[in-house]
């Protein structure tokens, strides 16, 4: 009796894990199934490269892919140095309660809802950008990536801090022992030894930036065009899904959002694989 319960519960645990994992596959399956017409006659590839022109019967998502990449990569350009600086501030430059307080503040920041950034973006940042650059509506790639920077930085900072702290203390003490300063220890020992962790933090944050919907939807302007400059309005894959959603189920226009879903899924998988590869290296590195 006791042994059967024991076995039964184990099977229950296993099923939970297995079904959860299966759901991840099921999600991809559903995307493929509902987007099936897209794959007829080799249309999928052209969808990735064509422009979006429903009146011409073209439902390509190329502009959205370009918009997603532009906004997320630009936000990484802002967020990476900012996060690195903040992580250095927390782990090296500041001491004691200041450092703890900063860390707490950054941790709290990860809890701020995305929609809040979008909301404040609309009413505060968009008018600022509009007036400063004298650029149309002010809803553009630059605005969205600035707000996105605020969204992804906290996670990146925490990752960087962790990877700095993982570097064995003994390595650094050697520098201090020969009269080096804290900053020298950081620059010559900690930083070179924590690059795998830094890359992992970067990759994960890039994933977060690619996958965010609300900020781009609310403040990037949503124009269907591959952005030519920072002040152009753009639409991301995620925003596209949210916007086209209301249309007719059976139309090819609607099916195209499943192509967006598939592309986002594949991008995510790619980044996850990259992180796994990096963590494998990281383990070898720190051993």
């Amino acid at each position: 009796m006791n042994r059967t319960t024991e076995k039964g519960v184990e099977i229950l645990f296993f099923c939970s894990a297995f079904i959860s994992a299966l759901l991840t596959l099921a999600l991809f399956g559903f995307m493929l199934m509902l987007g099936l017409p897209l794959f007829a006659e080799g249309r999928f590839f052209s969808i990735l490269t064509q422009p979006w022109a429903p009146h011409l019967g073209q439902f390509g998502i190329h502009p959205m892919i370009a918009g997603t990449l532009a906004i997320s990569l630009l936000s990484m350009v802002f967020a990476f140095p900012l996060s690195l600086g903040c992580a250095i501030l927390i782990t090296v430059t500041s001491k004691g309660w200041v450092s703890r307080l900063l860390r707490k503040a950054v941790e709290m920041m990860t809890g701020i809802p995305t929609v809040i950034y979008g909301f404040v973006g609309i009413f505060l940042l968009v008018p600022l950008v509009r007036e400063f650059f004298d650029a149309g509506s002010g809803m553009c790639v630059l605005t969205a990536s600035l707000m996105l920077t605020l969204l992804v930085s906290p996670t990146m900072i925490l990752f960087f801090c962790d990877s700095f702290e993982r570097v064995p203390v003994a390595y650094g003490t050697a520098v201090l022992a020969v009269g080096g300063s804290e900053m020298q220890r950081f620059l010559h020992v900690t930083l070179p030894h924590s690059w795998p962790g830094i890359l992992i933090g970067f990759t994960l944050s890039l994933g977060r930036a690619l996958g965010d919907t609300l900020i781009a939807l609310m403040i990037a302007g949503n124009a269907v065009q591959a952005p030519g400059s920072l002040l152009d309005s753009a639409r991301t894959l995620t925003a596209h899904i949210a916007l086209v959603f209301a249309a007719d189920f059976e139309s090819l226009e609607f099916k195209a959002i499943f192509a967006c879903g598939i592309v986002l899924y594949l991008l995510t998988t790619l980044l996850v694989m990259a992180v796994r590869l990096l963590s494998g290296r990281k383990e070898r590195w720190t051993r």
Partner: peptide, 17 residues
């Protein structure tokens, strides 16, 4: 691996699902 992918999926994709 599956849980990593699941954790990384954009929420709009989950909504679409």
């Amino acid at each position: 691996l599956f849980f990593d992918i699941m954790a990384g999926l954009p929420s709009i994709v989950v909504g679409l699902f």
